[in-house]
Amino acid sequence: MLKDITLGQFFPGTSLVHRLDPRTKLLCVVLYIAALFTAAGWVSYAVVFALLAVAVGISRIGVKALLRGMKPVVVILVFTGALNLFYTQTGTELVHLGFLHITTGGLERAFFMVTRILMLISGTFLLTYTTSPIALTDGLEHLLGPLKLLKVPVHDLAMMMSIALRFIPTLIEETDKIMSAQKARGADFEGGSLLDKARAMVPLMVPLFVSAFRRADELATAMECRCYHGGEGRTRLKQLRFQAADWAVLALFVALLALIVVLKLRFRV
């Protein structure tokens, strides 16, 4: 079950998508999401989807890896789909089952909502799959740089995020280990009611938290020993640099958003 957690996972590679500057990718994802939420009809969705498909193709991440990341949200998808299907009562009625009415409008809406969530997740996953967490936080730190003027601790937040990402695999491994140890002593994590399951988690969470705090303490000491003293005067192994490709891709995504907005306002498709 824990193997399904792909959040923050990074698949190294050399494709164009991998090589783009993290700032470009972050901005593109923002533009992409904006476009996705502006999209008002079949044509718009098809355009956004085409761009996503091309990006996935170039990245060579593979649709399978993307779909694997969707598993945890299946419940949300089904729920959203059902809700929109049954509560939208426009267009002609297709099915009438007791108190349930399925209409063409409902079908269309449910399809759009589910597709929107799927595309939203795919887009953000493509970002984290092709960008090393270090590059990602580095990019974020640069993009949010102006907030420093408002006394927002941008560097510290970025550092916290990169450490959190760094420890995800370590903590997952540890959870697995503790689970095996508890299972060996007869603990049951799968069976029983929801309450039983929650109860079974207690002996799992306690040692996990204790160890996480100990790790945090040791890591802080180790960082201090390696001369960490905040973001001031810090240099980087890899300086971020915008290439021609970055500008081109960025322009493409700006164009995408503009197109979707025009499609919506002028043609409502």
């Binding site: 090393s132 270090i134 990169s162 990402l165 760094r166 180790a222 960082m223 960490y228 192994l237």
Partner: peptide, 14 residues
């Protein structure tokens, strides 16, 4: 508990 980064060289560079 002393490795800070997700990539070996990035950690050594810390």
């Amino acid at each position: 508990n002393q490795i800070v980064a997700n990539v070996v060289e990035e950690d050594v560079a810390f």
